[in-house]
């Protein structure tokens, strides 16, 4: 087992009276693909939003560590600092691209902070200093690299909104990868993809893990994808982690089966009575 990249400790998130995530602890390991599964409303996306700073958890700690030993307490950071400094990138359940901008521009926005520094926070860039042109060329090269990886290089100058759905999903991952993340969080990356696209996604995610060394945390309903590529699976139900382990172990866990297939009301009543 590798060292942990993210440690979630006793995380609780409440919305008014609703407890979306309840005292959850989870370890995401470096250079592994960790899948987060569970029925709708189990709190998976809420957990994502806590990790990426869009929600501030009610209680709990989120410790992210880089391989050089730097560590970050994510629950104390603004979302853009989490992306910029802690290097956690994410995609969204309902794809969020800059639809009116071209693919290339989408990937350049992802490199905003690098480019911003290179443009001397705009002043040097405004007057055309050569340093900025070099930085922009490097950024375009990286964008082209990732466009090649997702097979969209030919459409670099088209608006992102014109892409078919599957391609938009790939582009969103490419955009997240342009931020050079340590941890990549994917919210249902296979949703709406056909079988072929889904298989390509598997290959791509494995390649990101093996070639780029990025750790991946993903939410997914497509069990085919989850079982095939995950190194580790955590199962959530009603905000609580009910199982955690290797794919084979999780697959046969009775609690997981009950959560997914549902248990008849009488059985619950019986179970409660026997307590």
């Amino acid at each position: 087992m590798t060292a942990p990249v993210l440690m979630v400790e006793h995380l609780t998130m409440r919305f008014g009276g609703l407890v979306a995530v309840n005292d959850l602890s989870l370890v995401v390991r470096r250079k592994e693909i960790t899948a987060l599964i569970g029925p709708n409303g189990a709190g998976k996306t809420t957990l994502f939003n806590c990790i990426t700073g869009f929600y501030k958890p009610t209680v709990g700690r989120l410790l992210l560590s880089h391989s050089d030993g730097k560590s970050f307490l994510l629950e104390r950071m603004m979302e853009f600092r989490i992306a910029r400094d802690a290097r956690v990138a994410r995609t969204f359940q309902n794809v969020r691209l800059f639809a009116g901008m071209t693919l290339l521009e989408n990937l350049l926005v992802a490199q905003h902070n690098t480019l911003m520094a290179a443009s001397g926070y705009t002043m040097l860039g405004l007057f055309g200093f050569p340093g900025y042109a070099r930085a922009q060329r490097r950024a375009v090269d990286r964008a082209r690299y990732w466009l090649d990886r997702v097979g969209l290089a030919e459409r670099a100058d088209d608006p992102a909104g014109a892409l078919p759905y599957g391609a938009q999903r790939r582009l969103e991952i490419a955009r997240a990868m342009c931020t050079e993340p340590v941890l990549l969080c994917l919210d249902e990356p296979a949703a709406g993809l056909n079988n072929r696209e889904s298989a390509e996604l598997n290959t791509f995610l494995r390649a990101i893990r093996d070639e780029n060394g990025t750790s991946i945390l993903l939410i997914e309903h497509d069990m085919g994808v989850v079982m095939e590529i995950s190194d580790h699976i955590a199962v959530l139900d009603y905000g609580i982690m009910i199982a955690d382990g290797a794919p084979a172990a999780v697959r046969n866990d009775p609690k997981v089966i009950a959560a997914y297939l549902g248990v008849a009301d009488e059985e619950i009543a019986q179970a409660e009575a026997s307590l």
Partner: peptide, 11 residues
């Protein structure tokens, strides 16, 4: 406001 519902940002 005084009697409004708090709004949670939809992400």
């Amino acid at each position: 406001g005084l009697l409004g519902r708090p709004e949670v940002e939809k992400v």
